[in-house]
């Protein structure tokens, strides 16, 4: 199981992706779905639905899950905190505030929601990182700064919602996350970011291991703690910001996927990074598929599904046996 987890998740993802292509509000079926890729007898409408509607969101959801899971691994190591997730330092509330502000000011027709989400998330990230780069700022200072940023930006967003109640649903729908508006351009960028984040973290696997030690041990083992922390935070935060700006705030995958893989593989990052990315991608794809098919007349925000599925699974994992973060 330990050795083959990556392959098992990859195989499960491929099976799930095929099933996800075949099911949806338009009944296409497995045979016709396979036919689209093998040149079988299919209608142009079926080809359009499979290739332009379903495939794009399947790849988008997988890449988003992978990015959030990888960022979760990185945050948990950098902050030395098993409860850390990619949104803990305020990236999500920064993005949500950016979107709410843009809608309130009527600016969305010019640049689109992702632009303002990215601006809000990036602004928050830079603010928190500027705090982190102060001399001797501890993990606790960093976490509390993130909590403070989350509170103040959430309060500001709520105020904007209050002042602009007719746009409430639009902002809420965005903030709960969706892949229904994913485009091939977004998929190209998200897959590139997922690949780069994976390579970056894999190249830092020994650094990530050492960051989980107390600071004295990490430093005396040879780690340049500050510079490594800042590099990891910067890259992981920007990847998260980009993901949030495209697909909204989708919670729990970034917290859960690292714990699920650690449960099977232990804490060593060389073994952990690839299976975590695959697990995050799988969980997100599974959640998005459910979000598409659970309501016959529409779809649910994927963020609701990740939380509804994730919380019981997560509680089961941490309450089961002697699991202590690994």
């Amino acid at each position: 199981m330990r050795r083959h987890l990556g392959w098992i998740v990859l195989l499960a993802t491929l099976v799930l992706a095929l099933a996800s292509l075949a099911i949806g509000s338009s009944r296409i079926g497995l045979k016709a779905t396979i036919g689209v890729f093998t040149g079988g007898n299919t209608s142009s409408a079926q080809r359009y639905i499979i290739l332009n509607l379903r495939l794009v969101r399947i790849i988008a959801s997988f890449c988003a899950g992978a990015i959030l899971a990888l960022a979760g691994v990185s945050y948990q190591a950098v902050l030395r905190n098993p409860m850390a997730d990619p949104f803990i330092l305020g990236v999500s509330s920064g993005a949500s505030f950016g979107v709410a502000l843009a809608i309130y000011l009527g600016l969305t027709s010019r640049f689109g929601l992702p632009f303002f989400a990215l601006a809000g998330a990036t602004g928050t990230t830079l603010f928190i990182l500027a705090l982190a780069s102060r001399k001797r700022s501890s993990n606790t200072v960093l976490l509390l700064s993130g909590v403070a940023a989350n509170y103040i930006l959430s309060a500001a967003m709520t105020l904007l919602l209050f002042l602009n109640r007719e746009q409430y649903q639009r902002i809420l729908a965005w903030s709960l996350g969706t892949f229904s508006t994913a485009t091939w351009n977004q998929v190209a960028i998200a897959s590139l970011v997922a690949a780069l984040l994976f390579l970056f973290l894999f190249g830092n696997h020994r650094n990530l291991d050492l960051l989980l030690l107390d600071e004295g041990s990490a430093r005396s083992s040879g780690l340049e703690v500050e510079s490594v922390r800042h590099r990891l935070l910067l890259f992981s935060s920007f990847a998260t910001a980009l993901c949030v700006s495209f697909f909204g705030v989708i919670g729990f995958i970034g917290l859960m996927a690292p714990h699920v893989t650690r449960l099977v593989l232990g804490a060593k990052h060389r073994r952990l990074i690839l299976p975590t990315a695959l697990t995050g991608g799988f969980l997100m794809l599974f959640s998005d598929t459910l979000a598409r098919i659970l309501i016959p007349t529409g779809e649910l925000p994927v963020g609701i599904i990740t939380s509804l599925l994730g919380v019981p699974l997560f509680l089961f994992l941490i309450l089961k046996g002697r699991y202590r973060f690994g």
């Binding site: 050492l210 989980l212 004295g216 083992s221 650690r262 232990g266 804490a267 060593k268 973060f325 690994g326």
Partner: peptide, 29 residues
């Protein structure tokens, strides 16, 4: 410096469950 000095902390408890061998191997960083 790490190739000259090794350090054992007062509280080296780990919340993340590396094996004993993985923990010792970190000293080779």
């Amino acid at each position: 410096l790490a190739q000259r000095i090794g350090f054992v902390p007062q509280d080296g408890r780990l919340d993340f469950s590396f094996t004993v061998e993985e923990t010792v191997a970190m000293g080779r960083y």
